[in-house]
């Protein structure tokens, strides 16, 4: 770690903070991340296979578990943190997330309505999920 090109105020994406204790650092950080990610994955598969949740709520539960797991990956594997040395990385990530949400949400919303409006011609589509 000492030979690394260090920087006074910024941390490269994926790098642990250059100084001080990192919340999700080192091998133990990866182990914790692996454990949590495996737990969430198992929970997602259990949602589908076991009668744990009210059936119409299963897709929403799956979405929540997936977002939680993406967060775990970001924090423990990609070392995104809230520290000031990570501000640039977090801002870029926030903008990317915004575009992704607009793209997926907008497509589903608009095309769901379009499909609904064209109901006499085809089958009814109940949007997604």
């Amino acid at each position: 770690m000492s030979e690394r090109e260090t920087d006074s105020g910024d941390t490269a994406p994926g790098d642990e903070a250059a100084e001080g204790e990192e919340f999700a650092g080192g091998t133990s950080g990866y182990l914790v991340g692996l454990g949590l990610a495996a737990l969430l994955t198992c929970a997602a598969f259990a949602m589908v296979n076991l009668p744990l949740v009210w059936r119409p709520a299963v897709p929403m539960a799956l979405v929540v578990l997936a977002i939680a797991q993406m967060g775990i990956h970001l924090v423990f594997f990609l070392h995104v943190s809230s520290g000031p040395d990570n501000t640039n990385n977090v801002l870029a990530l926030a903008f990317g997330t915004l575009v992704v949400l607009l793209l997926i949400g907008g497509s589903v919303w608009i095309l769901g309505h379009l499909d609904h409006a064209m109901m006499p011609m085809g089958r009814q589509m109940h949007g997604f999920p």
Binding site: D7, D10, A12, G14, A92, L93, L103, I104, F128
Partner: peptide, 30 residues
Amino acid sequence: SKRTTVGYGFWIYLLSDIILFSGFFAAYAV
């Protein structure tokens, strides 16, 4: 440092790649 700028540039590429994926996700959802 070069490590920071290279990493940041690659981070931007990854985000654009994820936006590419989001187009395919949107197509699948629809």
